[in-house]
């Protein structure tokens, strides 16, 4: 019997905690016939932005997280915010080899990269007369600022705890945030409309390299096979989650906004260039190779 200590970045408010991290743990246990048991610790054990080091040090063997939380060490995967969540095309592109090479240098083995439909912009003021974000102040993490400026908005940096009261009081006009679970965070109360986007949300499951190298061959096969199961089901799961989210937001009286085709194209360009510019900030060559792979596989077009 093998007990694996997994570190989960999210608390239960984010559905990814359940459908990605806990789900993978369950898949491992089931597929191994109970031989693998996973002990999950949450963000109350290690704060989200500090979780890579303890995994590198072997304190935890598996880390289930979002690449935006360890940009101090690797920015590579944030480039994937620009791609279509298509697991088959992604696997066929050979992108995973580039990702594994890059993280391998950090003492980490990349187990899985589940791709999901990611972000919406929650607004308390509708779109501008031009049909974009001109004159709107939008809270976003700095790597995502190019997305906001691409459609005329002014990006603002605010800590998460202040984002909600700032939206409610009109200090800011909107916030870019993961779609899944948004109503659970309270957006329906502080905003009155939302703008859907095609920005993707890559997640990543990492293993401590020494732990991975020490795993018996048959168990490693279980990890790999279940990673594929997870990656395959995630886009569908998120389609369902986002649809549920849209229903909840509509029930709360929130209006759905959509960009016209020209503005949407501007956003898509902004996301592609912004995501890959930022992705290159830590390991530029690896990012350039990864971009090439996903571009060749046609993953950049929605």
């Amino acid at each position: 019997e093998t007990t694996v200590r997994m570190l989960n970045t999210w608390d239960d408010r984010y559905p990814g905690s359940t459908v990605i991290c806990e789900r993978y743990a369950q898949l491992l246990t089931e597929a191994s016939g109970g031989e693998i048991t996973v002990q999950i610790s949450g963000p109350e054990t290690i704060p989200p932005l500090e979780q890579l080091e303890p995994t590198q040090a072997g304190l935890f063997q598996i880390l289930c997280t979002y690449p935006g939380f360890h940009t101090g060490t690797s920015t590579l995967l944030t480039g994937l915010e620009s791609i279509r969540p298509d697991p088959e095309a992604f696997r066929a592109s050979g992108a995973m080899d580039e990702i594994r090479d890059s993280y391998g240098k950090l003492g980490l083995h990349v187990v899985s990269v589940p791709l999901a439909h990611g972000y919406w912009i929650f607004m308390n003021k509708g779109l501008s007369e031009q049909g974009d974000l001109t004159g709107r102040q939008i809270r976003a993490l700095p790597p995502q600022h190019p997305y906001i400026t691409a459609i005329g908005g002014t990006p603002v940096v605010l800590p998460p705890a202040e984002m909600f009261s700032a939206l409610e009081r009109g200090v800011i006009d909107g916030a870019l945030f993961p779609a899944a679970g948004a109503s659970g965070y309270g957006f329906a109360e502080v905003a009155d409309s939302y703008l859907t986007t095609n920005i993707s949300s890559p997640h990543v499951i990492l293993a401590n390299q020494a732990f991975w190298d020490g795993l018996p061959e048959d168990l490693r096969t279980v990890f790999d096979a279940q990673a594929e199961v997870l990656e395959t089901e995630i886009p569908g799961v998120y389609d369902r989650l986002n649809a549920e989210e849209a229903e909840k937001l509509a029930a709360a009286g929130m209006q759905k906004l959509e960009l016209d085709a020209a503005t949407a194209a501007r956003l898509e360009e902004g996301v592609a260039s912004g995501a890959w510019t930022f992705a290159q900030s830590r390991d530029p060559e690896a990012a350039a190779r990864l971009e090439e792979r996903v571009t060749e596989a046609g993953l950049l077009t929605n």
Binding site: H70, G72, T73, P142, P143
Partner: peptide, 14 residues
């Protein structure tokens, strides 16, 4: 040794 930066929008060496 690893050249780790802070995980922030405006990173500095840790």
């Amino acid at each position: 040794g690893a050249g780790t930066m802070t995980a922030a929008g405006y990173p500095v060496p840790r």
